[in-house]
């Protein structure tokens, strides 16, 4: 009974100093217990904004193995903790409804997407690379040795990590592909 009464702001109004009921007496329990989710996160992971090339530092807050907040890293001498609207939208970019998590497949002449397992897709792609590579293979061009394939090409975005670009260049070059390109050209 007393507990209930004490939770009644009117009671608190007359007991406490906040007579007008505009201050702490009006505070709800939820409000009193409010904590920022950056404070309750399990860990903070250091990251870098994926948009432009300024390279602003980001702090990624993780709770229960989910990203719950992304904000600027104040330690960064590049950005001093600040982010632009795009960087500030990183949480929505990485966890928002626009993300797709399923492999989709459109068969030749098909009119709709179909589902495919990742494993199956990887296997099919590997087969297609081998086939296109052979079909477009050239040992020589105008009498000069070229040892290459014109059968497939690649175009990468410039949000790829250096390590990703390295593996792409390494693998595709070893496969003999030369039409390996990037946003950096565009």
């Amino acid at each position: 009974m007393r507990g209930w009464l004490e939770s009644w702001p009117v009671y608190r109004q007359f007991r406490g100093e906040d007579r007008s009921g505009r201050g702490e007496s009006a505070m709800s329990r939820r409000t009193a217990e409010l904590r920022p989710r950056v404070g309750t996160a399990d860990r903070v992971v250091k990251s870098v904004c994926p948009y432009c090339a300024v390279g602003c530092g980001q702090d990624v807050f993780v709770k229960d193995e989910k990203v719950v907040q992304i904000e600027g890293d104040p330690d960064s001498p590049v950005s001093r903790g600040r982010l632009c609207p795009k960087g500030s939208a990183s949480l929505q970019l990485t966890t928002g409804s626009a993300r797709r998590y399923d492999v989709l497949y459109r068969r030749p002449y098909g009119t709709e997407w179909e589902r495919l397992s990742l494993d199956e897709a990887m296997d099919m792609i590997a087969d297609r690379v081998i086939e296109a590579r052979e079909r477009g293979w050239q040992w020589e061009e105008d009498g000069a040795r070229v040892r290459r394939t014109m059968g497939f090409a690649s175009l990468g975005g410039a949000t790829l990590d250096n390590e990703e670009n390295y593996l792409i260049k390494k693998l595709f070059t070893a496969l003999g592909a030369i039409q390996i390109e990037n946003q950096a050209r565009i």
Binding site: W8, P9, V10, Q13, S20, G21, R22, S25, A26
Partner: peptide, 12 residues
Amino acid sequence: MLRVIKPTSPMS
């Protein structure tokens, strides 16, 4: 509406 009595609020 009955949480508080607010002299500043005509609605209260």
